[in-house]
Design a protein around this nucleic acid. Structure first.
Lengths: 108, 108
DNA sequence: TTGACACGACACCAAAAGGTGTCATATAAT
DNA sequence: ATTATATGACACCTTTTGGTGTCGTGTCAA
């Protein structure tokens, strides 16, 4: 529900620096139209729009039309998937375990 | 340090399903050579090798040569960057804040 | 109602990504 | 010594990605 058509992997959506910057800008400002987002990037309006579409396909931004402008806002909820994923591997870098694993390797 | 030559964005390295699966396999097994990793994927040895190279460039896997095989093992530490990044945005999806933000939007 | 603005949709293009197969080399096994 | 295995390094190909510019439509302002 909520998403029509294509769906996009959240990991993929977040992989590009431009899109992470978009997320940051939207997090700070709450809601912004395309023409206010564009000047923050070294590229044209169309390119920024496409990045926003990708974020939208991943469920990371939502859209509201106000007059002639389209306001984009962050929906961070899908990031939960990333947090869950990375949390699982956090046990592999806790400093104690890291030292332990290194020791075990030397034994072999 | 420890990385020579090209460096690779961790977000980018983790964006591809094949590479996340590689991380999982290495996390479970501790250390595996290429020819044991390959059969888990619907692609050839060369392709898997390239994915491992990308993970290596991101510092996510380390390598040890044992006889004629190259053993790959996970170094999860770079994932910390992702965890830090996503932790910042977690405040935007905590259920209380989500409800609050929605209310504020309706006011406007 | 005329003109400026905001945007989506589209055609287009270069570069990167993600596969393939082949070859050369180092090691292990017979 | 010879043969089989494991891998890295290439050359190559197709698809996707990330950018551009243009056009058409809807909305606001004069």
């Amino acid at each position: 529900m909520g998403d029509n058509g294509e769906m996009r992997d959240v990991f993929d959506a977040v992989a590009h620096p431009t899109r992470r910057r978009l997320i940051q800008l939207l997090a700070e400002a709450g809601e912004l139209p395309l023409h206010e987002l564009t000047p923050h990037f070294p590229m044209g309006r169309t390119a920024v729009s496409k990045h926003l579409t990708i974020l939208k396909e991943a469920g990371l931004v939502e859209v509201r039309k106000v007059g002639r402008e389209t306001r984009y806002r962050l929906n961070a909820a899908p990031l939960q998937e990333i947090q869950d994923w990375v949390a699982y591997y956090s046990k592999f870098w806790s400093s104690n375990l890291m030292r332990l694993r290194k020791l075990l390797e030397e034994e072999e």
